[in-house]
């Protein structure tokens, strides 16, 4: 564990708490893509099958359980509790376009051709692009509540911080994980546009609005 990864994980935790806070206080999941949230559940379930056979640490264990539980809980809130506040007509990204290619990529590029490893690779690829339906929705509406943008920013910061973590691990431990690194760089890259608007508008106290 190093500081970059710890801060990255904390940013990931923060993003989940911000999202829960947004849903609970506004009693609405307006502006949040159900599809993206559903993809995160799938990401966690496929990545953390190793919970059953590979012990890493108590930290790792607790975080995995938390990510699975919280993502399922968010899905429950969106699907049942605050269902009327979700507008499916805005959440129209076709996730088949993400699931299919990620699955094929996982079959081709994995570390071992076995179920757990293919699922792991699938989860890495899927996580990289899972934000697409959310960004697509943002693009369609052209604006977002500040709290929603804080959620997205924390999520972007989480993956961005994993990059210095990998560089640090390369120099201190001599290990590289090409699948995670490539997918992680792509994933972070997807946030660049968002970050630009976030830093130049939201953090200056303006409304998050995309140029027409």
């Amino acid at each position: 564990m190093n500081l970059f990864r710890l801060l990255g994980d904390l940013a990931h935790l923060a993003s989940i708490f911000i999202l829960l806070h947004k849903i609970q206080t506004t009693r609405s999941c307006r502006g949040i893509s159900f599809k993206t949230q559903a993809l995160y559940v799938l990401v966690f379930l496929t990545r953390y099958v190793d919970l059953f056979f590979h012990w890493v640490s108590l930290y790792n264990f607790v975080m995995k359980i938390f990510f699975i539980a919280s993502s399922c809980y968010i899905l429950y809130l969106m699907k049942y509790r605050f269902r009327p506040t979700h507008d499916p007509s805005l959440d129209t990204f076709k996730i088949e376009y993400l699931l299919g290619p990620c699955f094929v990529l996982a079959l081709i590029f994995n570390y071992h051709f076995e179920l757990a490893e293919v699922l792991w690779a699938f989860s890495i690829y899927l996580e990289a692009v899972a934000i697409f339906p959310q960004l697509f929705m943002l693009q369609r509406t052209g604006e977002a509540e500040a709290i929603t943008t804080h959620y997205l920013a924390a999520l972007g910061v989480y993956r961005a911080l994993y990059i210095p973590n990998w560089i640090y691990r390369y120099f201190t431990e001599g290990v590289v994980d090409p699948i995670a690194v490539v997918a992680g760089i792509v994933q972070t890259g997807l946030y660049l546009d968002f970050f630009y608007v976030y830093f130049t508008k939201v953090l200056q106290g303006q409304k998050f609005e995309l140029p027409a």
Partner: peptide
């Protein structure tokens, strides 16, 4: 085993 790093990250 080339994947020691893989499964200790979240």
């Amino acid at each position: 085993e080339g994947n020691a790093i893989l499964h200790d990250e979240l």
